[in-house]
Nucleic acid binder design. Structure first.
Lengths: 342, 342
DNA sequence: TACTTTTGGTAAATCCTTTTAGCAAAATCC
DNA sequence: GGATTTTGCTAAAAGGATTTACCAAAAGTA
C-alpha cells in the first residue's frame, strides 16, 4: 500500500499538463477558465482512476478556512449536550463541516484556554455554552471574525447570535400548572448560578407564584455541589424543614433525580403528598413510577437552528453577523406526578 | 482588531533575522543549532510580546501530522459513548490532540464514507467501534499507517489493537448469580446482532445456564427495532408466552429500560415474581425502585487505556502497531432486583 | 602564517493547494 | 493582410511552517 498520497502535482506530471489546469478542473472551473472539454474529461477520468482526493490541510491553509466547527459545552457526557451533538453532527457533515467537541466544566479559565488553542487551529466557527466571565473572550472572537453562536444560555451584556429556549415562560407555565392543580406552597429547587437560563427559570417561577398571591420558597444548592449524595442529603433536609410543601419544581433534571431519591428516602408519596415537575425532560421520567411531569426542550429544533445559524454565519460574508437570535418554545408534559387524574 | 495573524515571517522581518532562526528558537532547537543565547532571548521576548502562536495548519501540512483523533462510535448521544468521549477528551487535550466525533448508526456504508472523508483530512488516529463488514476498511487504514484502535467490540478476523471488556465472563457471572439466587428459567433478552460484544454476552449466558443443567431461553429482538414502543410490546409478549420465567437478563441497559416498562405493564413484581439483572450499569438503575442489579463497564479504565493505546500508536514509529490488546474486567453490582436480602 | 574547526547564522526547498496575471496560437474582423 | 479578439493553457506567488545544506567570520592549532 502506498503511504505517499498522490497530489495534484503528480496528476499534472503524469498527464503532462500544468497544476493550474488540474486545479481548475477539480474545482469545476473548467468552462469558466476555458479548458477544453476534451482535456477536462481526460483529467476527470484520470482523477477517478487513481482515486485522488485533495488534501484538506493544504486547502485550508490556502483558503484560510478549515471547515471545522467547535462545539464547546459544559459537559459532553451530559445527555442534553450529547443529544444536541448527535443532531448537529448530521447537518454539519452534510455541509462538509467537521465538529470538534470540548467540555468546559463551566470553568472560565478552561474555556478561555480551549478557545485559545482553537483559534490557533484556525477553526471556522464556535458553538458555545458560555461559562461565566466569558464576555470579553467572546467579543474578541467576534472581532476576529470567527462565526460565534451561543446556546443554552446567552450573555445579555454583549451582542452575539444565540439559540436558546423560553426558560422564563416555561417555568411560569409549569408553576402555574402546579398552582392550578392545588399547590399552595411550591418549593423551587435550583443550583446557585449566574447562568441566564437559571436566572430566567427562577424568574418565571417567582412571577407565577407571586401573581397568584403565594409565597416564594426557593432552595438553592451551591454550584459545585460536593457530590451527588451530599446534594441528596441537602434536598432531604430542605424538604423536612418545610413540612408544608405541597409541590416541588426542579430547575434541571439532575436536580430532579436527586430530589426523587430524597423524596423516596423520606417515604413521601408522589402525587399524594406533593406534586412534582422538572425542567428538562428525560427518558427516565416516563420510566419512573409515577411518571414525572417535565418541560421538554425541543432538541430537534435547537439543533436545526444551531446549524442553520452557524452555516449562515459561516457562509455570508457581508450580512450583519450578530443578528441570528432565536428563542424556542418548550413543551410541558403533564404526567402522573403533577396530576391526580392521570 | 487585526484580522491578519502574525506569522513567523513577520517576526523574522521585524527583527531583521531569518525565518530559519525564528523557527529553530520556537522549536527549542536554539542550542543545538548554535543560535546565540542573546538572540534567543530577544526573539523569545518578542514572540511573547506580540503573542505569536504558530499556525497549526501550516505545521500539519509540513509535518504530515494533524494532531487530530477521530472518535467514531455507533451513536455519540448514547450515554456510554458520551461518557467515554468526555473522559478521553481530557487526556487528548493534555497531549495536544483534538477529537472529532462522528456516529455511524452501525451502518457500514456510513462508516466507510466517514473514514474516507477523515483520511483526506489527514487525521492521525482513529478510535472506532466497528460496524459490521468493516474489516477491509480497517485493514486499509492500518496499511496506510494510521493509528487504529477498536473499542467496545473488536474484529476477530483481523489483527488490530483494541480495548474491550470481559463480556463473556461477566455475562457468565451475572447468570450464575441469578441461578444461585434460585432462578431455574432465566430469559436472556438481546438484540439481533453480529457484534462481538453481543455474541460474547450470549455465550457467557449460555455457558452458565448449561453448566447448571438448565435450559437456555433467549429472546432476540430484531436489530432495527422499529420503535421503542414496539420493542416494549415484543418483550411483553415474550414474557407472557413464557409464564414460568423466574429471571431476566438484559444484554444492554436500553433493553432493560424497555423490559422494565414491559414488566410494569404486566404488573410483574421485581424481585418477587422474577429477578432482573442488566448489562451496562446506568444511573437510572439505582434510582429505579427496586434498584436494578447491573454489570458496570469500567468507563474510567476504558478511557484511560484508550488514550494510552492511542498515544502509543501515534508516537512510537517503530514498534509493532497491532499489539495493544486490552480486555478489562467489569463489576457486577448486586442490588434489590436480584437479591431478596437487599 | 596557513590551515582547520567552531560559531552563528541564512537561503531555499518542501508540504499541497488556489488563483492572478499573462502568453502564444488560432480565429475573427475590417 | 494586419489588427483585434478568443481560445486554451501555464508560470509563479501565496499561504505558514520545518529542515537540509551551506556560508562567512571568528577562534583555535601548529
Amino acid at each position: 500500500m502506498a503511504k505517499k498520497k498522490t497530489s495534484i502535482k503528480d496528476i499534472a506530471r503524469s498527464l503532462g499538463i500544468s497544476i493550474t489546469t488540474v486545479s481548475f478542473i477539480l474545482n469545476g472551473k473548467a468552462k469558466e477558465k476555458r479548458i477544453s472539454e476534451e482535456l477536462t474529461l481526460k483529467v476527470e477520468a484520470y482523477i477517478k482512476e487513481v482515486g485522488y482526493k485533495p488534501s484538506h490541510l493544504a486547502q485550508s491553509l490556502r483558503l484560510g478556512k478549515s471547515k471545522v466547527i467547535v462545539f464547546m459545552v459544559e459537559d459532553i457526557s451530559n445527555q442534553f449536550f450529547a443529544s444536541i451533538a448527535r443532531k448537529i453532527e448530521e447537518r454539519a457533515y452534510k455541509n462538509g463541516y467537521k465538529i470538534i467537541y470540548c467540555s468546559t466544566d463551566n470553568d472560565p479559565e478552561k474555556a478561555k484556554a480551549l478557545i485559545d488553542t482553537f483559534k490557533v487551529r484556525s477553526v471556522d466557527g464556535f458553538i458555545i455554552t458560555p461559562t461565566p466571565a466569558l464576555e470579553s473572550t467572546v467579543v474578541e472572537l467576534i472581532e476576529e471574525e470567527f462565526a460565534v453562536l451561543l446556546f443554552d444560555r446567552w450573555i445579555p451584556s454583549i451582542d452575539c447570535s444565540y439559540v436558546v429556549v423560553e426558560n422564563e415562560i416555561s417555568a411560569f407555565e409549569a408553576t402555574t400548572h402546579l398552582i392550578q392543580n392545588g399547590c399552595k406552597n411550591i418549593g423551587f429547587i435550583i443550583v446557585e448560578s449566574d447562568q441566564m437560563q437559571m436566572i430566567d427559570r427562577l424568574k418565571g417561577y417567582g412571577n407565577a407564584v407571586e401573581s397568584h398571591g403565594l409565597q416564594k420558597n426557593v432552595f438553592m444548592l451551591p454550584f459545585h455541589t460536593i457530590s451527588e449524595s451530599v446534594a441528596i442529603n441537602k434536598i432531604q433536609e430542605y424538604i423536612q424543614n418545610n413540612n408544608d410543601l405541597d409541590g416541588l419544581f426542579f430547575a434541571t433534571n439532575y436536580l430532579a433525580f436527586e430530589g426523587l431519591q430524597a423524596l423516596n428516602n423520606l417515604k413521601k408519596r408522589i402525587p399524594e403528598d406533593l406534586l412534582v415537575v422538572s425542567f428538562d425532560d428525560h427518558y427516565f421520567f416516563t420510566l419512573f413510577q409515577p411518571n414525572i411531569s417535565a418541560i421538554e426542550q425541543p432538541l430537534e429544533s435547537i439543533a436545526e437552528k444551531l446549524m442553520e445559524g452557524m452555516l449562515m454565519l459561516l457562509e455570508d460574508d457581508e450580512k450583519s453577523k450578530q443578528d441570528f437570535k432565536v428563542v424556542l418554545p418548550n413543551i410541558l408534559h403533564v404526567r402522573e406526578s403533577s396530576d391526580f387524574k392521570k
